[in-house]
Structures are given as structure tokens and as C-alpha cells.
């Protein structure tokens, strides 16, 4: 089989996984189903990163989103409901206007995308990006890098302060 055809099939498979699980996140009534839909969305986006030749970013996506953020969200679900309440349902409201707005946003985005003549640099061979990203972070982006580290420290202290039990 032609490799280009094969890669197209795999691409459409991961795109379908991403969008279908994102739809599960949005439309499922059960919070647990939403969280597991989010898991597959993150995996699908990581696979799309691999297609785009961003190997380091794909690994980062798996480690931080799946290993960190998703676990935090699951903690949030579990800690804010009674544990014997197995059907953790969530209410929805304003569904019809939101569907209209969603379709309008999607339409406008796709329309704008179609009418723009994107500059295309042409296909390039994918190369390992980790060393290049490390060099960029330490040379061109050193100030944002340091600011991000301070931001993480502030978030750590702030989150601990907010959930701390006040002394009575």
C-alpha cells in the first residue's frame, strides 16, 4: 500500500478520535465519561502533534495533560461529589442558543480559513526538535522561560493558600 495513502488513513483516524471524544466531553451527562473523553482527546491531539513533526511537544502533551491536568480534573470531580453518588450528573442549560453559537463560530472560522491565502513553505522532512527547542528556550526565549517558572511558583503557593483550612 502507498505510504501516503496509509498516512492519510491514520491521520483521519486520529482526527476522528479527537473530535468524537471531544464531543463526548461536551455532550455526555456523566462527569466521569466527560473526563475519560478528555483523555482520548488529549491522546488524539498528541498524535496530531506527531503528524506535525513535533515529537517533543507530543511527549509533553502526554506527560502534562494526561499525567497532570487530567488527574487534577478527576480529583476535582471526585472531591466535589459524594463518593457513593455513582452517577455524577451535570446539568446543562441554554443548549439551543449555545449550539447555534457553536455552529456560527465554526462557520466563521472555516470561512475565514478558506478565504485566506496561507503562505505555504512546502513539505519539509521532520527532524528531531528537542535539542532545537532547548536551544531556543535558553537563547531567544530566556525571559519568558524565567517568567513561566515564577508563574508556576506563584500558582503553587496560591493554590495551596486558597485551599488551606483557615485557623478558626
Amino acid at each position: 500500500m502507498d505510504t501516503s495513502l496509509l498516512s492519510q488513513i491514520v491521520f483521519y483516524f486520529f482526527a476522528a478520535v479527537t473530535l468524537a471524544s471531544a464531543a463526548v466531553v461536551v455532550f455526555s451527562r456523566s462527569l466521569i465519561y466527560s473526563a475519560f473523553g478528555l483523555l482520548f482527546t488529549f491522546f488524539g491531539v498528541a498524535a496530531l502533534y506527531v503528524f506535525l513533526g513535533a515529537d517533543f511537544l507530543a511527549a509533553t502533551q502526554l506527560v502534562i495533560y494526561v499525567g497532570g491536568i487530567l488527574i487534577l480534573l478527576l480529583f476535582g470531580v471526585m472531591l466535589t461529589h459524594k463518593l457513593y453518588d455513582l452517577n455524577l450528573k451535570t446539568e446543562t442549560f441554554q443548549v439551543a442558543p449555545s449550539v447555534l453559537l457553536m455552529l456560527a463560530v465554526f462557520g466563521v472560522l472555516v470561512l475565514a480559513m478558506m478565504q485566506t491565502a496561507w503562505y505555504n513553505a512546502g513539505p519539509r522532512q521532520p527532524e528531531p526538535t528537542t535539542a532545537a527547542i532547548g536551544t531556543l528556550l535558553m537563547k531567544d526565549f530566556i525571559l519568558p522561560f524565567e517568567v513561566a517558572s515564577v508563574l508556576l511558583l506563584i500558582a503553587l503557593i496560591g493554590a495551596a493558600m486558597i485551599v488551606r483550612r483557615r485557623a478558626e
Binding site: A22, T41, T80, T92, M102, F106
Partner: peptide
């Protein structure tokens, strides 16, 4: 990729607008 990204974005907007649960 842009179409996939636009679809993800609009689904996210939908989720933010319709859910009452803060974690959702």
C-alpha cells in the same frame, strides 16, 4: 489541521456555555 482546531474550539465554547458544573 485548521478545521480540526476550529471544531475543537467551538466544542470547547459549547462546553463552557452549557455546563453548570465548574469542573466541566
Amino acid at each position: 489541521y485548521l478545521v480540526i482546531s476550529a471544531a475543537l474550539f467551538s466544542l470547547g465554547i459549547m462546553c463552557v456555555l452549557t455546563r453548570k458544573n465548574a469542573v466541566s
